[in-house]
Computed example of a mutant assay.
Amino acid sequence: MSRPPTFAPPPCASPRLLSTSRGDFAVLDARPSTQDKDIKATALLLPGYTGSKEDFIALLEPLAAAGYRAVAVDGRGQYETDGPDDQSAYAQTELARDVLAQAEAVGGPVHLLGHSLGGQIARAAVIVEPTLFRSLTLMASGPARISTAQQQKVKMLSDALAVLEMDQVWEAMKALDPPEDADTDPGNGEDLRRRWLRHSPVQLIATGRQLTVEPDRIDELAAVQPLPKHVLSGERDDTWPVPLLDDMAQRLSAHRTVIAGAEHSPNTDRPLETAAAVIGFWDRH
């Protein structure tokens, strides 16, 4: 689970609902302190499994300061965006269509960035309709299913979600946390708990399964031209090994960035370095 340093958005970002042809989505909408006509471009930021728009809070201020409007989204069934109690509603094709609607609603084409599960949803959207996007950044998001160890963790979580209430699952997860992962900020710990309780368990079960069976679609994505592509990760990742991400970048002829000192969530581990890498890539395109 990504652990944002705070759930309070910076002054440049406004929490609001983004109305689209596929419903309303809770977003954090960060804008430069300039007139809209001076905005370089708009970016759409998609969180990962168990995550939310708050995972990008530490990126929003530097992105806005660099001249970009950045819209971080809760997907359907994530945190502050409602979702139905029907697993078919969370099929990857449905989630990809949501992204297309979001891009249209913010005034695409947009720079698209997806973290982990969000990256796999992002690439599905790009494959369907690439004209809505200026570029694609895959952040800690691999070519196919997650590692065997992570598959086992997701299966354990899905099994628990099928029989327990969300608060019971939360307490079980906290009990299993290693001491070094214990949250020392009681306020932020309560924010994390509140976020967890507002996730749809149906969404978590459906998207968790996607992560364990996702096929390799890199050849399909590589064929989407001339869309610029960026593969960004930390220097360690237990969800998709870094050499696998290196190979994926080569197959995509993508720009490659490795953030020193970061693991699976460079957006929260090393946000300033991550923002600088993303801005540099966007500025070139």
Rank of each mutant, 00 (worst) to 15 (best):
M166T: 15
A96M: 00
K53I: 01
V224H: 04
D36E: 12
E171Q: 14
A125K: 00
K53T: 06
S14Y: 10
V99S: 01
R134A: 08
S116G: 07
C12S: 14
A175K: 06
G107E: 06
S116V: 04
P47Y: 03
A254T: 14
V110H: 00
Y68W: 07
S141W: 07
A89M: 01
T257N: 09
I146H: 06
A222I: 05
D159R: 09
P15M: 05
A58R: 14
T274W: 04
W196P: 01
K37D: 14
L272A: 15
A140H: 06
P266N: 13
D238R: 12
Q210G: 13
A105Q: 02
Q150C: 10
K174R: 14
D269W: 02
G108H: 03
P186D: 09
Q152T: 07
D269Q: 06
L17I: 03
A8M: 02
L252M: 10
L157M: 03
H115S: 08
T6E: 11
A64D: 04
R236A: 11
R69D: 14
G67M: 10
E80D: 15
P179L: 05
A13C: 12
H285D: 12
R195F: 01
H199C: 06
P143V: 06
Q120D: 03
A64I: 11
L113A: 15
V163Q: 07
T93G: 04
S158R: 13
H255M: 09
N188C: 12
H199A: 01
S14Q: 12
S147P: 11
E171G: 10
A144I: 10
V106P: 07
H115W: 04
Y90G: 14
H199L: 03
S21Y: 07
H115K: 06
V278H: 09
L221S: 09
W282K: 01
I259V: 11
P271R: 04
I127V: 10
G107W: 05
R256P: 07
Q151E: 15
R198A: 11
E214R: 14
Q92W: 15
A140S: 15
L136K: 01
K174T: 08
L136F: 08
Q35M: 14
A43K: 01
A223I: 08
V231Y: 12
L227C: 07
T148Q: 14
A89F: 02
A277H: 02
W170V: 02
A64M: 05
A41C: 04
R217C: 13
A206M: 05
K155L: 15
A103H: 03
L164G: 04
V27L: 06
T212D: 09
R69V: 13
L227N: 07
T42N: 02
A122W: 00
C12G: 08
P226R: 00
D283G: 02
V110W: 00
V73A: 00
D24M: 03
F133R: 00
L117G: 01
D181E: 12
V213E: 13
L60V: 05
F7L: 01
G234H: 04
D38C: 08
S158P: 04
R69C: 11
D38T: 11
G108S: 04
E104R: 08
L138W: 08
A144V: 13
A66D: 12
L28D: 08
G48Y: 03
V163T: 09
P109S: 09
R31K: 14
K53S: 13
W282P: 00
R284L: 11
T207C: 04
R145H: 11
D98E: 02
L136I: 00
A144F: 09
R194S: 11
V106N: 02
H115D: 06
G77A: 00
